[in-house]
Amino acid sequence: MFKKIEAYIRHEKLDDVKAALKEIGIVGLNVVDVHGHGRQGGIVLSGRQGSYTVDMLPRAQVNIVLSERNVEKTIAAIQEAAMTGAQGDGVIFIYPVDDVVRIRTGERGADALTYEGDIDTKAGK
């Protein structure tokens, strides 16, 4: 069973999160620039004269698909690396994944998802 982890984090924490994921053996991931807000609402910026508020804040969306058994470990790594303790640290969503296809080879499922030496193959041995 595969899961997709979708983490919304501060841009300035992306390097730390990438390093933490590499550390635990995550090989494949992708990152998308997104704008949004949670309860935080927005921030005040300075203008030509005086200030103004913007409510859509930039965040990085980090996407990872991996075996269910490694999900908790991965979430813990992201949470530790992405946390500042201030409002706006972000959220992590976890989704079920039906199947995976590697375009180059047509492999399906676990064969399409795992790489030599990544977290899933290591844990499988």
């Binding site: 300035e12 924490k13 005040v44 910026l45 300075s46 200030s51 913007v54 500042t84």
Partner: peptide, 19 residues
């Protein structure tokens, strides 16, 4: 380091270059 990570545009000038 936190101010640097956020970037000097926001932390020192309260502005961002690209909206």
């Amino acid at each position: 380091e936190t101010e640097e990570e956020v970037g000097l545009d926001i932390s020192e000038h309260g502005e961002r270059a690209y909206a």
